[in-house]
């Protein structure tokens, strides 16, 4: 399987371990990731809160490049995924926007690119195929799969049921870990507010951590660099603000799958987390 890869800006900066794990695990599974050449930023919240045309035009450039190469796209970042899907939708359903964007881009998007989240691309391999690759089962590890917002909402662009998403749970279960049922799996972590309204964002992080811990989860799995950094590296600030003492490791789901497949923790970037996950993983892998 050969698929276009749109890492997004975070994966070359603060979330480089997600990039490492995604490339390593997909490679192990025989998926060939072709990085979209000369890709640009999707614009994120900054663009869509500022200018509608820009919010479509920035992702559109990436879509056009992928289209010219005849590639579908897989996206590891939930925010980038949603921006690319939204742009695709606008460009294929709203003729006026499509023409305006073609004007500033100098190129026309025909709408042939299929955009998948990394969750979908991994699930497409087949849960049984993934299970068969497991050499280091994570039996006994209780994982709270955190979907957050933009992977599943709005329903028009989401990659799974917005209220009861299952993709990550199913993927994590292939490692023999237990995916716990918890109420905050699709609540917002407030990553978009961390600069504009930090105290609000920290409150949201605190609630999610609280619910995960109360449900008995040992680690949180996620599929978004913004969610991960918010839930992981803000734990110190949360503990300070709310007088708590959370220390919940927050992993990218390909890291968990990689560990179960016997890939080296260092190669998966496990040592770069704020809350060290290696202790929790050592417990289960003996």
């Amino acid at each position: 399987m050969r698929v276009g890869y749109y890492p997004g800006c975070s994966l070359e900066n603060t979330a480089k371990e997600y990039d490492l794990a995604a490339r390593l695990v997909t490679n192990h599974l025989g998926i060939q990731l072709v990085e979209i050449p000369d890709w640009n930023c999707c614009g994120a919240t900054a663009a869509h809160s500022t200018d509608h045309l820009l919010a479509v035009a920035l992702p559109a450039r990436n879509l056009v490049i992928a289209e010219e190469m005849g590639l579908d796209i897989t996206v590891p970042c939930a925010a980038c995924y949603q921006r690319l899907r939204t742009a695709h939708r606008e460009l294929t359903e709203n003729r006026a926007v499509a023409e305006e964007v073609a004007g500033v881009l100098g190129r026309q998007y025909r709408g042939t690119v299929r955009i998948h989240s990394l969750l979908e691309t991994m699930a497409d391999v087949g849960f049984d195929v993934l299970s068969a690759q497991v050499v280091n089962p994570l039996k006994g590890l209780r994982v709270a799969c955190y979907y957050g917002c933009l992977l599943v909402r709005p329903p028009s662009t989401g990659c799974d049921d917005p209220e009861s998403p299952q993709l990550m749970d199913r993927l994590v279960e292939t490692t023999k870990a237990e995916a716990v049922r918890w109420g905050y799996h699709n609540e917002c972590c407030g990553a978009a507010l961390i600069f504009g309204a930090r105290e609000v964002a920290l409150k949201l992080v605190q609630r999610i951590l609280r619910n995960a811990v109360d449900t008995g989860a040992q680690v949180i799995a996620c599929a978004c660099p913004l969610c991960q950094s918010n839930l992981d590296i803000r734990q110190g600030q949360v503990n300070k603000a709310f007088g708590t003492n959370f220390a919940v490791p927050v992993l990218y789901f390909p890291q968990l799958i990689g560990i179960a497949m016997g890939l080296a923790p260092r190669d998966l970037g496990l040592e770069t987390h704020f809350v060290d996950p290696q202790k929790a993983l050592r417990i289960v892998s003996g």
Binding site: C9, N13, C41, G43, A44, T45, A46, S49, L58, F195
Partner: peptide, 21 residues
């Protein structure tokens, strides 16, 4: 603050094509 952050973010994107976090 939100507007300031968005401005700086977009300025970075305009200059580099990607955001320089």
């Amino acid at each position: 603050r939100a507007v300031l952050f968005n401005e700086l973010f977009l300025r970075s994107v305009r200059r580099n094509g990607r955001v320089f976090e």
